[in-house]
Design a protein around this nucleic acid. Structure first.
Lengths: 167, 167
DNA sequence: GAGCGCTTGTTCGGGACCAAATATTTCGAC
DNA sequence: GTCGAAATATTTGGTCCCGAACAAGCGCTC
């Protein structure tokens, strides 16, 4: 949320709006930068790798999960992709219309639905992943190896901490 | 994208899917963890602070920007909030219907539209922000002060690097 | 001062997104 | 075996989200 403003300007503005309430700026900067970075990265990858593929970000993530782990149950895929089951239903409708992914029934439990990539989906992922990974490398180009690992580790801690709540 | 799998399992699965292409795992983990953390945090804040306020995440972010910087032009707010102008138009329609925000014309340029919080919007932000910041602190609870700053700094570098492209 | 690029916000169409309600199936208690 | 509770995916309704097309205003040139 900084834009062209400096950190100090932002902190001063918040201080003014709050009239002396104490603010945890360290936490605020960490959290808000995660959000900003995530948006920026998603935009960048949509503009580069996904441009002209007809895939949305979420569509790609869903296919990535299925590609990586092979045929899977929908609720597992939804959790891995970080979307709700109802969203997945809609996304699958789109991906199925492209013939990239296929639904089929669970062998024993008729409530469940399984997913697998079609041959065209498989081909697409195999051709897309190297580009994707190249752009991921571009994104963290300004960080050295230690910073990249530290970043991933810190974020992993955050995610794990939030997972312990687990309503 | 790890879920309950270990890092090693995931790396092995990717290696298998790619048959020996070399993968920048450091970049991959850094980027994918930013995405995972961002989703987890957004979900958490929606479930805690925003629950029962009637505000969505994006609605809150838009109000936050206007609250922080005072009356502003829409294109500035859209950029700060990380959404497109057309999205902002829709979000504003919602926020205006709640009487939390108000549009008014730019004093000299009749193309532009200015925004300001209403009294009720102002009240809402003042009451929400302490909760919000408390939850931000909770999110990074497992990181020490140095890690929080390092995290914010690394992410800031990523964002700034991506901003240099600027189509 | 008419015309023409440029900037700005909105509209439109299609997809993503979620919670709540729904329908189907499973599984345990009895 | 039957009932009811739990688990599962889908539908529904409302919002978010974007790019492209659009409409309106600005400012420059001539």
């Amino acid at each position: 949320m900084t834009g062209h403003h400096t950190l100090r300007q932002t902190e001063d503005a918040i201080g003014e709006r709050l009239g002396g309430l104490n603010v945890d700026f360290e936490a605020m900067w960490a959290v808000s930068n995660i959000y900003r970075a995530s948006s920026a990265i998603r935009n960048h990858l949509e503009q580069t790798v996904l441009r002209d593929t007809g895939l949305t970000w979420t569509g790609f993530v869903v296919m990535w999960v299925v590609w990586l782990w092979g045929e899977s149950e929908t609720r597992h895929v939804a959790a891995e992709a970080g979307i709700s089951k109802s969203t997945l239903t809609g996304v699958l409708k789109t991906l199925e219309s492209y013939r990239h992914i296929r639904r089929f029934p669970h062998p024993t439990d008729r409530r469940r639905v399984m997913l697998e990539l079609t041959a065209s989906g498989e081909r697409l992922m195999r051709s897309l992943f190297p580009d994707f990974n190249r752009q991921e490398a571009f994104v963290v180009k300004e960080l050295d190896s230690e910073q990249r690992r530290g970043l991933a580790d810190s974020l992993r801690k955050v995610v794990q901490h939030l997972e312990t709540i687990e309503r």
